[in-house]
């Protein structure tokens, strides 16, 4: 069995749900409809000639202020034919949850939990969608661009009193 072109085969099978992007630095990225990702993943995993058996990574990306706001980049690896592929889906708050790929690649379990934890991307069909890196009762999604990094204002003579007001100690 020889390697087949992932983009061509996917287009043949999924038609409009699969869009391509320009190759950048020798990497192939294929944009997929968010609702189709599990089917496309299953197809890429099982079809002879493609055999993307290894899921390296799922990355959440915040494109704020663009719409759709969030991106998920799935980095696939085919060990047999020694090549990588990036699948990409877009998602915004209020959209239908993205179908989970945990059933295809078990390693997706924690990667999807991380994307949920950091960006609030929702997944349907995930066995255990909880926060992973942040505390269970954490509010907000810290990866988002509108989530502040958090820092302390430097106290100079011109804003000395103003900063002092907000300090928890040394009120005098």
């Amino acid at each position: 069995m020889s390697a087949s072109d992932p983009l061509g085969t996917l287009k043949e099978h999924f038609g409009e749900a699969v869009r391509e992007t320009l190759p950048f630095r020798g990497e192939t990225t294929i944009i997929v409809d968010a609702q189709k990702i599990a089917e496309v993943g299953r197809f890429l995993h099982d079809t002879p000639g493609l055999e993307y058996k290894f899921l390296s990574d799922i990355t959440g990306i915040d494109y704020y202020p663009e719409e759709p706001r969030f991106g998920l980049a799935y980095h696939l690896l085919c060990m047999r034919f020694n090549r990588r592929l990036r699948l990409k889906v877009y998602w915004s708050d209020g959209d239908e949850p993205v179908p989970s790929v945990t059933g295809i690649w078990k390693s997706a379990n924690w990667e999807e939990r991380e994307a949920y934890d950091m960006y609030g991307v929702e997944f349907s069909g995930h066995p255990d969608l909880r926060r992973i890196l942040m505390a269970e009762d954490w509010e907000g999604f810290p990866g988002r661009k509108d989530y502040p990094l958090g820092y302390e204002v430097v106290q100079f003579s011109f804003n000395f009193d103003d900063v002092n007001k907000h300090k928890p100690y040394a009120k005098e």
Binding site: F24, R25, T29, S56, D57, I61, A73, H75, R86
Partner: peptide
């Protein structure tokens, strides 16, 4: 653009995604 680089770290595949 967006790139992904991976190396064989002592523990396994260490990848870096840069957008």
């Amino acid at each position: 653009g967006e790139v992904y680089a991976a190396i064989e770290s002592p523990r396994g595949e260490l990848g870096c995604f840069l957008a």
